[in-house]
């Protein structure tokens, strides 16, 4: 189990921003994180960046996992980061995955996305990442 010192379970919003309906990866990751003991809120499909950030703030999330397979990741990830900053919630760890070419991965990381998981990633790697990089807010 992942009971941190603060005593609260790490809370993660798994989100599908944008218009694409490919939710297989998001759902598998949401379930794997839940089975690993984290508290997971899955937003459902077709969310605007505003909706994703509102959910994260409302749920007091420690991390947001974004899944995008439409090629719109550059716009959508950037917008989520901007909105988090505007709301003073930039301590929320943002990670993501999808069909994302290598040079975009580098650019997204430079922008502040903590990690990008591309096809073939094991759910164990994602769980390990969350354990290593996400702490529950006190």
């Amino acid at each position: 189990m992942t009971a941190p010192a603060a005593g609260r379970t790490v809370r993660i919003v798994v989100a599908k921003p944008g218009l694409d309906g490919h939710d297989r990866g998001a759902k598998v990751v949401a379930r794997a994180l839940r089975d690993a003991g984290f508290e997971v809120i899955y937003t459902g499909l077709h969310q605007t960046p505003e909706q994703v950030v509102a959910t994260a703030v409302q749920e007091d999330a420690d991390a947001i996992g974004l899944s995008v397979l439409s090629g719109a990741h550059n716009y959508l990830f950037k917008r989520v980061l901007e909105l988090l900053r505007e709301q003073g919630a930039d301590d929320v760890v943002v990670f993501g995955g999808g069909i994302i070419p290598p040079e975009d991965v580098a650019a997204l990381k430079a922008m502040g996305v903590k990690e990008i998981f591309t096809p073939g990633t094991s759910t164990q790697d994602i769980i390990r990442f969350v354990r290593d990089h996400v702490r529950a807010a006190v």
Binding site: G18, L19, D20, L69, S70, G71, A72, N74, Y75, L76
Partner: peptide
């Protein structure tokens, strides 16, 4: 592309970042 598949024109705010991508 996704905006056409979801019923939004290219100039709709929900189409931002998605035009001609997929």
């Amino acid at each position: 592309d996704m905006p056409a598949l979801m019923g939004y024109d290219a100039d709709h705010p929900r189409a931002r970042g998605e035009v001609g991508r997929e």
